[in-house]
Amino acid sequence: MGQQPYHLSPEEIASFDENGYLILRQRIPAPMLQRLRAATARLIATGKAADELPEDYQVRDEAMFRIDYLHEKGEAATLELLGSPAVLGIAESLSGPNVVPTYETLVFKDEGDGAAIEWHQDAVHPRQHRIYNIDVYLDASRKGAGALRVVPGSQRGRVDICELRDGYGWMPPESFEVELEPGDVLIHDVMIVHGSEPTEGKALRRTIYFEFRAAEQILTEGPWDRAWVDQRLSFLPLALAEHARANPDALQFDWQATPELRPDIDPDSELRILHLKHTGGSYCSAGSVPLPKAKDEGNATSSPAMADATSDPA
């Protein structure tokens, strides 16, 4: 894999590995950003207008906040984003050519919704491979207005979230709020501790989360099998084609997946591939359950934590 304009530099990769996050300013081209903002506005409006909440729409504290399985919702812009060099260049840089798109979620806080997203780690794993979310910001995220707060370096092991919360509240050592503009991208390791404080009078904030893992990681550690990997990889030819259709004069991504893993384009591919299983994360909530000990967790940072039953990017 040669260095391309859309790949991360060695310095950026080293910074991500050290800190557990990386900010890329104005990564998403303006026309694509506009299409994503319009598409997500329609998706949110659909949920608000429905008498019964549509499938894959989720509510927390009586407020709609999340839509899963985005590519199946009839908005081509999410596939265009997935197929863009802006996204796949990051993924190939961190996972190699056999990168698998594992989750696609819109998380949002509506105007006036100041609910907190409590401290958590999305997923805890043996750390033999990178697992991460590419967070595409469609609206500004400001300090003091519910911006994401991260704890750099906390990705190196499982963290006791209850202990951290009870000991430090929203101010653990070295934690800080990440300010982002529309079109910025935040890459975060699924094990970095992050959350957002409660606030009042919050403006609309929408973020698209794409999680990626190397096929080699999934086939070695699970929780999914080869058939599931093949189904998820079938998204990529469709996404690459949609990006090329929407951006005929733009740079296209040169996908270099291993031939036996690389599917042919199939316009009838299923775009809602259920997970059924998830890699447990670390949370502190009434619904959490003890996390089974991983085979090799590296440098654990605390006593055994609590884990939710699902990966929950936010």
Rank of each mutant, 00 (worst) to 15 (best):
Q121W: 02
L274A: 14
A214H: 04
F176M: 05
R142P: 02
R232C: 05
L276D: 15
R25F: 13
L236R: 05
N299I: 11
P5C: 03
H129W: 15
H194L: 08
L271R: 15
H188E: 07
L22Q: 08
D68N: 11
G281N: 10
N19I: 04
A214R: 02
P173L: 06
A76M: 01
G169C: 10
Q3W: 01
A45L: 07
M191S: 06
A77T: 00
W224A: 10
D51E: 08
M171A: 13
L79G: 03
P313K: 07
T40C: 01
K143R: 15
P152A: 07
D184V: 01
G47V: 09
Q128T: 14
I134E: 06
A77C: 06
E55H: 07
G287H: 14
I187M: 09
W170S: 13
L236M: 14
T199D: 07
I265M: 14
E200P: 02
P172L: 03
P126F: 03
E174K: 03
N299H: 08
G20S: 08
Y69E: 15
S303H: 05
S285H: 12
Q58E: 15
H194R: 02
G222L: 01
T220Y: 11
G167P: 04
E177G: 09
G146K: 11
Y6T: 06
A145H: 03
I208A: 08
V100Y: 12
D266G: 02
R42L: 07
E75Q: 15
L81N: 01
W119E: 03
A314Q: 14
